[in-house]
Write a protein that binds this DNA or RNA. Structure first.
Length: 296
RNA sequence: GCUGGGAUAGUGAAGCGGUCAAACACGGGUGACUGUAAAUCAUCUGGCUCAGCCUUCGGGGGUUCGAAUCCCUCUCCCAGCA
């Protein structure tokens, strides 16, 4: 019987506005943990309020990694995140703390916990050229070059990626990495909607509009980092197209759609221990950590 | 009170005698997605005992083989005149 020397990797997943962040901080404070955020938007510097990034005050003194890793005009990928997170996990464990990976970006999470082998080819010129072709033409291209097609033939982005790597990446693991457990928070849709609405209001009083203005002065809307989040919606307010009340509605709507995609992604993961609330998720994670601590 | 315009599925909006359960957009559901992923895409969206059937196009009544589409009437909206 090999004894577990290292702390387990606690993973917390769930849709946006499910209360993951608060739960992770509570866990970290109680069990001596440090947090690694797995959120494809919180990695950007200067995008704080609009991405619901926990402020220093909200972090309650808990060490947070995964925040402010790149500028909005820098390229940062799931593979970059994987490398970064793995290093941090080692680092945290070396200091005998509990690593807590928390986030809603499924690809980031799975990259780490299923040890994805990302294909490192990246060809910006090819992408730019291919971008001018229609989905049908891209499918035709794949057929001519006998490149395996992605599931959705209407998805240009996936089609271009398939051409770039010469097919579909089939290196899949179905089992989790060792010494790791995953807790999923899945509140009801009504509750999520309510939380999203409250959050949108808070963003306004915290100054998202000012933050958006600052971002628009520095960055182009065509950047990947500038898509999604609440920023494009606020921009419509700045352009006088919609009112603040409409911004709230649209923000809630886009959050709910995001939540749906996140839930769909995570549902595939059979290893997740689901809880309908952050409170229950806390209990679940604590139980597992208790077992680990007992061995020490 | 008179004269014109209008009432269509969750919302907006086409249709203007048959091929209409009714275009399209939005909203909503489901799903895909291993180096853009808060992205990108697919699919469904009146009901049902679902290759068929049933109930819909403000209400009621007609015309017609056949109406959301034509006529009459009622109700409610909007514009102009009183």
């Amino acid at each position: 019987m090999a004894t577990v020397r290292e702390a387990p990797l606690v993973v917390i997943v769930g849709p946006t506005a499910s209360g993951k962040t608060g739960l992770a901080i509570k866990l970290a404070k109680h069990w001596g943990g440090e947090i690694i955020s797995a959120d494809s938007r919180s990695i950007y510097r200067g995008m704080d309020i609009g991405t619901a990034k926990p402020s220093l005050v909200e972090q309650e003194g808990v060490v947070h990694f995964g925040l402010d890793l790149a500028d909005p005009d820098q390229r940062f990928t799931a593979a970059d995140f994987k490398k970064y997170a793995e290093a941090k996990i080692v680092d945290i464990r070396n200091r005998e703390k509990v690593p807590i990976l928390v986030g809603g970006t499924g690809l980031y999470i799975d990259g780490v916990i299923f040890d994805y082998s990302f294909d490192n080819s990246f060809n910006p010129e090819l992408r730019a050229t291919l971008q001018n072709l229609s989905a049908e033409e891209l499918v035709e291209y794949c057929n001519q070059h006998s490149i395996e097609l992605p599931q959705n033939r209407g998805n240009k982005r996936h089609l271009i990626r398939a051409i770039e790597i010469g097919g579909i990446n089939h290196k899949r693991n179905s089992s989790l990495i060792d010494n790791c457990f995953v807790v999923g928070i899945s509140p009801s849709r009504v509750e999520l909607r309510e939380r999203a609405r409250q959050r949108a209001h808070i963003m306004f009083s915290a100054g998202v509009v000012e933050e958006t203005i600052k971002l628009t002065q520095q960055f182009d809307w065509s950047l990947p980092s500038m898509s999604g989040s609440i920023y494009p919606i606020i921009n419509r307010l700045l352009l006088g197209e919609i009112s603040e009340a409409e911004v709230i509605e649209l923000a809630v709507q886009s959050d709910m759609r995001l939540a749906k995609r996140q839930i769909t992604w995570f549902r595939r993961n059979k290893a997740i221990l689901w809880s309908e609330s952050a409170e229950k998720g806390y209990l679940l994670a604590s139980k597992a950590l208790q077992a680990y601590k007992a061995e020490h």
